[in-house]
Amino acid sequence: MKRISILLSIVISIFLIFQSGNGHAQKTDYEKYGRIAISVVKEDYPGKEVVEYQYMGRQKVSATEVMDSFRFEVLENKKPKFVIVKIIHNLNNQKLLNLSIEEQEK
């Protein structure tokens, strides 16, 4: 009975290690394109304050391409403005394919 308990503990530990490894890969993917989006907003709005940042999610574009969307609130002349950054990238080679910026008044 003790052997079964030890074996079960080992199997569960291995399963948890693999699960945490998958989550880390997705988080890294998200962070990479989030850093790109932040850089673009800071470049397009130099000296303006970025008040809020939100990851809006991922949409599948094709079998190998996805679009990550980010929303920023920027203060321009003390007026809030929303900036939406959409990044399309290839899942196979992790290359950026398209980046678009859309500005919206609040």
Rank of each mutant, 00 (worst) to 15 (best):
M1H: 08
K2P: 04
R3N: 14
R3G: 10
S5Q: 11
S5R: 14
I6E: 13
I6R: 08
L7I: 13
L8F: 09
S9M: 14
I10H: 00
V11G: 07
V11R: 02
V11S: 13
I14T: 05
I14Q: 02
F15N: 08
F15S: 11
F15G: 09
L16Y: 00
L16G: 03
I17Y: 03
Q19D: 06
S20K: 05
G21W: 04
N22Y: 15
N22A: 15
G23R: 14
H24T: 15
H24W: 15
A25M: 15
A25W: 13
A25D: 12
Q26V: 10
Q26D: 06
K27H: 11
T28L: 15
D29M: 14
D29H: 10
Y30K: 14
E31Y: 11
E31M: 12
K32R: 11
Y33Q: 04
Y33L: 05
G34W: 08
G34M: 11
G34L: 09
R35N: 13
R35P: 02
R35E: 10
R35M: 13
R35K: 15
I36E: 00
A37R: 04
A37S: 08
I38F: 12
I38R: 15
S39Q: 11
S39L: 10
V41P: 01
K42A: 04
K42S: 02
E43H: 13
E43S: 13
E43T: 12
E43Q: 14
E43K: 15
Y45I: 01
P46E: 06
P46L: 08
P46D: 05
G47F: 03
G47Q: 06
K48E: 13
E49H: 10
E49M: 11
V50E: 00
V50W: 05
V50I: 14
V50H: 02
V50T: 02
V51Q: 04
V51K: 08
E52T: 04
E52Y: 06
Q54I: 13
Y55C: 05
R58I: 07
K60Q: 11
K60W: 03
K60P: 02
K60E: 07
V61N: 02
A63T: 07
A63W: 03
A63L: 09
T64S: 11
V66G: 01
V66T: 03
D68W: 00
S69G: 04
S69E: 06
F70Q: 00
F72E: 01
E73R: 12
V74S: 00
V74M: 01
V74Y: 00
L75T: 00
E76R: 12
E76G: 07
K78D: 09
K79R: 09
K79G: 04
K79T: 07
F82E: 11
F82T: 03
V83W: 00
I84T: 09
I84D: 09
I84H: 11
K86F: 05
K86T: 07
I87T: 01
I87K: 00
I88S: 04
H89I: 05
H89G: 05
N90C: 07
N90D: 14
L91H: 04
N92Q: 10
N92E: 10
N92I: 10
N93Y: 06
N93V: 06
Q94G: 05
Q94F: 10
K95R: 08
K95C: 01
K95L: 07
K95W: 03
K95H: 03
L96G: 04
L97I: 10
L99V: 09
S100Y: 07
I101G: 05
I101W: 06
E102F: 12
E103Y: 09
E103W: 06
Q104E: 13
K106A: 13
